[in-house]
Amino acid sequence: MTLRIAFISDAWHPQINGVVTTIKNTCTLLEQSGHLVKLVTPDQFKTIPCPTYPSIRLAVACYEKLAGELNEFKPQRIHIATEGPLGVAARRYCLARKLAFTTSFHTLFAEYVHLRFKIPMAWGYRYLRWFHAPAQQVMVATPSVEANLQSWGFKNRMVRWSRGVDADLYRPRDKDFISRPRPISLFAGRIAVEKNIEAFLELDLPGTKLVVGDGPQLKEFKSKFPDAVFVGFQTGEPLARYMAAADVFVFPSRTDTFGIVMLEALASGVPVAAFPVTGPLDVIINDKVGKLDDNLKKAVNEALQLDAGDCRNHALNYSWAKCTEQFFNNLVSVSQ
C-alpha cells in the first residue's frame, strides 16, 4: 500500500551530520519502496542564521506556508523529526486539526544549548517534554537515549529507530592515502563545542592527530593545536578514503545520541576510542571493535591493538534498509 508521508525537519543540507544522513537515507528508501514523501525542510522557507552557528539556517514565519503545503499534500502519516521552528509549526498544525503524529529525538538539545548559552539543562528538558508530549510515539535510536529521557520525566511511548551505514562506500582501503607518521588518530565531524574535540587534541599521542571537518571552532583549534593536521570539510569518496586510512577513530563527544560516524569508521575496518557515554555505549557493544574509557588516551592506545575484520563485521549488522523498515513500522495513521 502506497502512503503519503509528511516528514518535517529543521536539519537539512547544507548541514552534514548524522541527523541529515539518517533523514536522507530513510526518505530515499521510502520513495524507492513506492511511498510518496513530502519532505519539509528550511531551504523551502525564509531563514535566518542560527546564533553562534551561522551555517545552520532556521526557518522563520513558516506556519502559513507549511500549513498550505500539508493541506495540499493530505498526508496519511506525519513525522516531526526536530524541535526547531519547522517542528513547532508542524506540531501546531497537527494539534489544530487533531491529527496524530510521531516525533523523534536526535540530539541532546538541552545539553547543546547549555554548552553554547549556559541555559540550565532543566529548562531545555522542560521545553523538550512540552514539544514531544502530544506525539503518539517518540522514536529514539538506543536504549540509553530512552533511559535518559525517562530520567528527565518523559512519559511518552518510545520506540526504536536505529541507524545504518553505507558499507559499500565505507570499507577497508589502502592506508597509503595518508602519508603522515603513524599511528593516525582520526576525528571526523563538526568542529564545534558540543563535539568536545579539545579532549582529543590535548592528548599526548604517538604519530599524527588528523581532523576532518569544519565548524565554528576550526580557526581557534588550528591556532591552538599546530601539531594536529586539519584537512577541512570532506564528504563522499574523499571522506571514505581518510576514514579507511586511519589507524584509530577517536570520538570524544559526550553529547551524541548515536554517532553514525563510528559505524562509518568500523565499516572501514578502523577501531573506535571513546568515552563510556550515551552513543558509544550503544554502538561499541563489545571490546573487540573499540575501547571505552574515561581515560581517552588509554582507550586510544588499546583500540590500536584491535582487529580490522572484527570492526567491519560489527558494522555490517547495521543497514539503512533495516533502519527505514523500523521507521515505517513506527508511523501512525493521522486519523488514529
Rank of each mutant, 00 (worst) to 15 (best):
residue 178 I to H: 05
residue 103 T to A: 09
residue 194 E to V: 02
residue 129 R to W: 14
residue 99 L to A: 03
residue 107 T to H: 08
residue 124 G to M: 01
residue 140 V to C: 08
residue 121 M to I: 01
residue 154 F to P: 05
residue 142 T to D: 05
residue 132 H to W: 13
residue 132 H to K: 06
residue 137 Q to C: 10
residue 142 T to A: 07
residue 79 H to N: 08
residue 210 L to M: 07
residue 146 E to G: 13
residue 193 V to N: 10
residue 168 D to P: 11
residue 189 G to T: 14
residue 113 V to I: 02
residue 165 V to A: 11
residue 117 F to P: 03
residue 95 L to A: 09
residue 116 R to L: 07
residue 108 L to D: 06
residue 153 G to W: 04
residue 193 V to Q: 13
residue 140 V to Y: 05
residue 185 S to T: 11
residue 169 L to I: 04
residue 123 W to D: 00
residue 80 I to C: 14
residue 84 G to M: 01
residue 215 G to N: 13
residue 178 I to R: 12
residue 87 G to H: 06
residue 145 V to R: 09
residue 173 R to N: 12
residue 81 A to Q: 08
residue 212 V to D: 12
residue 157 R to D: 12
residue 163 R to F: 13
residue 90 A to K: 14
residue 161 W to L: 14
residue 114 H to S: 13
residue 177 F to N: 11
residue 81 A to M: 04
residue 112 Y to P: 04
residue 166 D to T: 05
residue 101 F to Y: 13
residue 126 R to C: 09
residue 172 P to Q: 15
residue 86 L to K: 07
residue 146 E to I: 01
residue 83 E to V: 02
residue 178 I to N: 05
residue 172 P to F: 00
residue 115 L to E: 06
residue 179 S to D: 11
residue 108 L to C: 03
residue 96 A to C: 11
residue 148 N to G: 06
residue 212 V to W: 06
residue 110 A to E: 06
residue 195 K to W: 01
residue 112 Y to L: 08
residue 200 F to G: 02
residue 193 V to P: 10
residue 108 L to S: 13
residue 187 F to S: 00
residue 207 G to F: 02
residue 87 G to Q: 10
residue 199 A to L: 13
residue 206 P to A: 03
residue 213 G to L: 02
residue 217 Q to K: 15
residue 101 F to T: 01
residue 96 A to Y: 12
residue 209 K to C: 05
residue 130 W to S: 00
residue 164 G to A: 06
residue 156 N to C: 13
residue 201 L to G: 01
residue 116 R to S: 10
residue 209 K to F: 09
residue 99 L to F: 05
residue 111 E to K: 15
residue 189 G to H: 05
residue 90 A to I: 08
residue 168 D to V: 14
residue 187 F to H: 06
residue 149 L to R: 01
residue 155 K to R: 13
residue 159 V to N: 14
residue 171 R to Y: 05
residue 135 A to P: 11
residue 92 R to A: 14
residue 202 E to V: 07
residue 144 S to H: 09
residue 114 H to E: 07
residue 124 G to A: 03
residue 145 V to W: 13
residue 191 I to S: 12
residue 85 P to G: 01
